[in-house]
Design a protein around this nucleic acid. Structure first.
Lengths: 338, 338
DNA sequence: ATGAAAGCGCTAACAA
DNA sequence: TTGTTAGCGCTTTCAT
């Protein structure tokens, strides 16, 4: 293993000079820099991460805590994780992957040991048990998702309240007066995951304003669950003509079932999905949808975190504005139908 | 920040004693251990990761290199990543997330700096450019996936050759003589990803043995691509009665299109999927499938790696045997139809 | 513009 | 069973 000292010797300079060439924290004559850089290349030197972390108390690692659960839509999680890793690297950081499994203890472990300098938490619940720890630490952190109380926290998320409202508006504009929300799995609501509840808030308040009736039904993914849910919806509100789906694994089943029941989309019923664009465009019908900007969320989270690490970051809640793209699954309600 | 020295002082013992209490590398009297543990708890001590790594030259970190591409099925990648992280933690390791973006350079960086002690690589190509580096390093590594030449490497993967063969056998048993393989996106084959090619090998050699005719068509995900692909298949081989699908995002489109064309599954055509069980059971039809044991693969990879780190590991190729579950999408071919 | 040297907090020989 | 101590490789202050 090549050490800094060996590089220094090889280049005929002192250790500190090599260090400074590497960090750029003080000016080096062009000549010296050249020699050092040549030695580094020639010897194949790589600074030791542990030593560096010890001496500088900066590990250049940020932790990313992802949910262990399988009821969250994996592709979105994955896209966020990849965006986080990519963006982090662009800023000189590596990413440590933590699963929610260890719970708050993981936060303590990683912070306490100085393994990671900062952390990004996904899948935040409204009253997340990890938040007190996060607030008490001086370690910078960013949440992807929005807890109930954001004071002292930095968060990034799609504005799900606005998203819910936007979906309702869209349907209302088309004359739909009775809409159903096909939501996430019951467990998601039971643990009070912010995004699901906020969407509902947005849907409900906007509906009230616009005089639209709303029926909300949580739904596990898959055909069987969707089939039961759909039956219940039409049973309770036969006049339903608009659907908002916030559950990726229910999207295709919903479309198939509607088709099967002879309800044409968008002629008889309209569907608006809240899902990644890839899903909306690859479904059996090009879906009118509000996109989930997974990449953007991951990227922004890292950027906020890096700003905090540099000391020029503030506690801030970044709500990405929803964008609804009209595709082939929504249209005017039949006159007088609802 | 609490240091080991402070703990030692507080407990009235030497630093090494505290260290040994922590590592369990030498016997400690019950009394001493107690005192030290109380001090640790009382002071809220957490060993410094950097210092530890420096002194012991073991970082307790393993790197996981995941593909950046979006043509791999995300949920499987995610499940593997989660299983890796979970299993690694159970063995005292943390996981560093690397994306393929940096390419071989990432391997060099992470190994060279001692950031990670070992690494797991996903999405291995048959002639992967990262392999030479892996072979030349003394750093333990495990591949998830199978390159062409596995000499000197440890690999874990589903036995895709056997998987392909198994699918054909199943269909042949039901009397299907003309089958089509709906494969991964063309790009997957173009970069010679092992699993896709091996499946095909298995399919072809078994077909030859059994006198089954095979048509293989790569296919991007989604309805549009599947629609084109399906049309071409029936165009070229109208007598096709069996399908093997190895592309998660083509599964549902295939079912929908067949239905739409009035071809009943499994009465007119049979479908066997190679996909995670969740997908097979949640599809619009319960699919006969060979499961992709994502979790198992992640777990095994870590276990092999940990064995290597302990010195008691060997270069070994672990091929998980495929398991085909018969569900509702496959059945006897119509007599004399093919 | 460069060097010397004191740690950073821990591990693991070596001693006792 | 426990203590003493010499590093691990780097950063950074203080000198020059």
């Amino acid at each position: 293993m090549v050490t800094l000292a060996e590089v220094a010797q090889h280049a005929g300079v002192s250790a500190s000079t090599v260090s400074y060439v590497l960090s750029g924290k003080r000016s080096i004559s062009a000549d010296t820099r050249q020699r050092v850089e040549r030695s580094i290349a020639e010897l194949g030197y790589h600074p030791n991460a542990g030593a560096r972390a010890l001496a500088s108390s900066r590990s250049n690692i940020i932790a990313l805590m992802i949910p262990l659960r399988t009821d969250m839509y994996m592709p979105v999680m994955m896209q966020i994780a990849i965006a986080v890793a990519t963006t982090a690297r662009a800023h000189g950081y590596d990413v440590l992957l933590l699963t929610g499994e260890e719970g708050p203890e993981a936060v303590r472990r990683v912070t306490g040991s100085g393994l990671a300098e900062a952390m990004i938490m996904m899948d935040v619940e409204l009253h997340d048990e990890r938040l007190p720890l996060l607030r008490s630490t001086d370690q910078p952190s960013v949440l992807i998702g929005l807890p109930a109380d954001t004071s002292g926290l930095t968060c990034v998320d799609l504005d799900f309240t606005a998203t819910g409202a936007l979906c309702v508006e869209h349907l209302a504009t088309f004359g739909h007066r009775d809409i159903a929300v096909v939501g996430e799995a019951p467990a998601v609501y039971e643990r009070h995951t912010g995004f699901a509840e906020r969407t509902l808030d947005g849907v409900r308040s906007r509906s009230r304003e616009l005089g639209v009736r709303v029926l909300h039904r949580p739904c596990e993914g898959g055909y069987d669950a969707m089939s039961v849910t759909l039956a219940r919806i039409f049973d309770e509100r036969p006049v339903t003509t608009g659907f908002v789906v916030q559950n990726e694994s229910a999207v295709e089943p919903l479309l198939a079932l509607l088709r099967q029941q002879g309800r044409a989309v968008p002629e008889d019923v309209s569907v608006v999905a809240i899902c990644p664009d890839e899903l909306a465009t690859q479904a059996s019908l090009r879906l009118t949808s509000v996109a989930i900007p997974a990449q953007e969320m991951g990227r922004r989270a890292v950027e906020l975190l890096v700003a905090k690490l540099k000391g020029c970051g503030t506690d801030e809640v970044v709500l990405l504005p929803p964008e609804l793209t009209v595709r082939a699954s929504s249209g005017p309600a039949r006159a007088g139908e609802s």
